[in-house]
Design a protein around this nucleic acid. Structure first.
Length: 586
RNA sequence: GCCCCGAUAGCUCAGCUGGAUAGAGCGUCCCCCUCCUAAGGGGAAGGCCAGAGGUUCGAAUCCUCUUCGGGGCACCA
């Protein structure tokens, strides 16, 4: 509908240009908007206001010229000029009602479109280090990323969802060492657990499994483990970082490559399996779990570094290799290869993004926590240095979610092991509420996640409100069936019986759904859809309260049932995109 | 110190990329089941869009400065 009106305006302006009323060289940007007020019609166009300066003509006069040159169209019943020069379009009710037929025709696909043109988009999200279970902060990235991916799919992009597994690097070694120490404790060794080790309960669990699978074959005496290590924080001249690094080295030495790998893999695989199941239960499915280690194995890191070296973007200083990212707007240069010869996390990330673009994606979307925002310039710098098109990379930063329970903030810290996990949240409030609440806020907005509200099975809770509308339609259909009524989709003339204000408001809302999906997808803003569904549910509940659907007049009954079935379809499609279930009974 | 994000009703947030009288939900106050689920509906009160300048026909929206929150500035990941 929007595009139809846009075409009318375009034609009108073309006519005026031919007549010489308007210059040939105009900077055109025709925007058609939904009106907020019914007295302003259904759609409004501000083109006269925007062109008045270029055309050297008063907005209202220009609007009159444009309206006069407007070609006739059956769907438009009236065109008004209002306010400072808005052109308001009133749409034929019949044309609006046609949406009901379209919804039945398209079914689950209603709202889908092809604007994506089959372009290949990769969406990478969550990508939390596999050093522990996902917490509620990751949950927001998961819900957001999954919904953006689903929205993009709905509007015709070919979407590839990916989780980047940081299975290489220092943190993983610390995890392995932490696990081994807990294992040794389980064997009865008197271990002093390092300040910087992973202290969560889940480490004990992995250690216990290790003991079950391998008995005491990995056991070494506490004295051998702890002997002459760099002192830990709290001890004389201690340093928690140097201590933990020494402990990692000691673990490798004592266990040998083979034994160390057993511990390392046990920790990694257990945690990764947990994360995978957690996300799957949350309705978040990936096409690929991309291992950082595979970048080492495939030689991608070496290749990326070599390319940067060849193109003169690396230099050596203080024994390390630096990437001159300042050439591309970063605030300082970054180390790629450390003095000890190891590549940095950043080097992996350069290789990973190089690999993404080499795989031929038209667009690459990274969903990161807001705490990583400082990282954006250097990754973009690297892509530029590699000669890739930086505009293909879109980094979406998701702000933190703060949990409130009983009005009190729930604190968290990963290292100490004291945090609310995503699983706990899902158990407490349910998947539906969690998915919906996470996505209810713009991603740049800090989020206060009210656990009590999400849990409440009351009208305070927007998830239930929308689901209830769906369930109510189902209930009406059950009643219809019980009363022995059959139903068939009326033709367009019969649908004209839907003419009271509640019906027209609901129908008008339904026509907007495809626009909302498209806008939410292209702007990466799932909350637009969440708010739309709330409004749609509200229109439905109002209608429900004002009118009886199962009426004696068969023609009216068929028409009303058609409308509420169409409404149910759109609610179902919308909630589906948000990963929220649609119960038939509540 | 530098950088990023935010500031809109008592609370939590929208505001369609610069448009018409700034909107929802919750909370507060009134009203509505002889009727398909009251997990619902209708109405009222509630605002100097943090503050000050600027850009223009027009600013909550764009620019600058200030104030207050959150986050980031590693040879960690």
């Amino acid at each position: 509908m929007k595009s139809q009106i846009q075409t009318l305006i375009t034609q009108s302006i073309a006519t005026l240009q031919q007549n010489g009323d308007l210059s040939q060289e105009l900077n055109l940007n025709i925007q058609i908007e939904r009106t907020r007020d019914k007295s302003h019609g259904d759609f409004a166009c501000n083109i006269a206001l925007m062109l008045s300066k270029q055309a050297k003509c008063k907005p209202r006069d220009l609007a009159e010229k444009i309206v006069a040159a407007l070609p006739a169209a059956a769907v438009v019943t009236k065109v008004d000029i209002a306010g400072p020069g808005f052109i308001n379009f009133f749409i034929n009710e019949g044309a609006t009602r046609a949406v009901i037929g379209k919804i039945f025709e398209a079914g689950e696909a209603f709202g889908h479109s092809a604007v994506g043109g089959g372009k290949r988009v990769q969406v990478e999200f969550v990508s939390a280090n596999p050093t522990g279970p996902l917490h509620v902060g990751h949950g927001r990235g998961a819900a957001y990323g999954a919904t953006v991916a689903d929205l993009l799919t709905a509007v015709g992009f070919e979407v590839h969802r990916e989780y980047y597994v940081n299975d290489a690097g220092r943190q993983m070694n610390i995890l392995a060492a932490s696990t081994w120490l807990r294992y040794l404790e389980g064997c009865g060794e008197a271990i002093t657990f390092p300040v910087n080790g992973y202290k969560g309960q889940y480490i004990y669990d992995i250690a216990a499994e290790l003991q079950q699978a391998h008995g005491e074959t990995l056991r070494h005496g506490a004295a051998a483990v702890m002997n002459e290590l760099y002192p830990d924080e709290g001890q004389a001249d201690g340093d928690k970082e140097l201590h933990i690094d020494a402990l990692v080295e000691r673990s490798k030495t004592l266990l040998g490559a083979e034994g160390y790998k057993i511990v390392f893999d046990a920790a990694l695989n257990t945690i990764l399996k947990d994360i995978r199941e957690d996300l799957q239960e949350f309705g978040v499915i990936y096409e690929k779990w991309f291992s950082e280690n595979s970048l080492v194995a495939s030689g991608a890191i070496d290749r990326a570094v070599a390319r940067l070296k060849e193109s003169g973007h690396l230099y050596q200083e203080k024994g390390a290799w630096w990437f001159r990212s300042t050439d591309f707007g970063d605030e300082k240069d970054r180390v790629v290869i450390r003095e000890n010869g190891q590549t940095t996390y950043f080097a992996s990330d350069i290789a990973y993004h190089m690999d993404k673009l080499e795989r031929g994606f038209d667009q690459v979307i990274d969903v990161w926590g807001a705490d990583h925002h400082g990282y954006v310039p250097r990754v973009k710098a690297a892509l530029q240095a590699l000669g890739d098109d930086v505009d293909k990379l879109d980094v979406l930063l998701v702000q933190f979610a703060i949990l409130y329970r009983g009005g009190v903030k729930a604190q968290m810290s990963t290292r100490s092991g004291e945090f609310v996990t995503l699983r706990q949240l899902r158990d407490e409030v349910g998947n539906d509420a969690a998915r919906f609440f996470y996505v209810l806020r713009r991603c740049e907005q800090h989020m206060d996640f009210d656990l009590d509200l999400a849990k409440s099975q009351s009208n305070d809770n927007p998830v239930y409100y929308i689901q209830y509308a769906h369930a109510r339609v189902c209930s009406v259909l059950r009643q219809l069936d019980e009363k022995g009524f059959s139903w068939q989709l009326p033709d367009e003339d019969a649908l004209a019986l839907l003419d009271n204000e509640h019906e027209l408001a609901l129908i008008s809302r339904l026509t907007r759904y495809p626009e909302v999906v498209e806008s939410a997808a292209l702007s990466h803003e799932p909350h637009q859809l969440a708010y739309y569904l709330r409004d749609l549910a509200n229109d439905f509940h109002t209608y429900y309260n004002a009118h009886q659907f199962i009426v004696d007049d068969a023609a009216l009954r068929h028409a009303r049932i058609a409308l509420i079935k169409a409404t149910r379809q759109v609610i179902s499609n919308g909630l589906g995109l948000l990963g929220v279930s649609t119960p038939e009974k509540m």
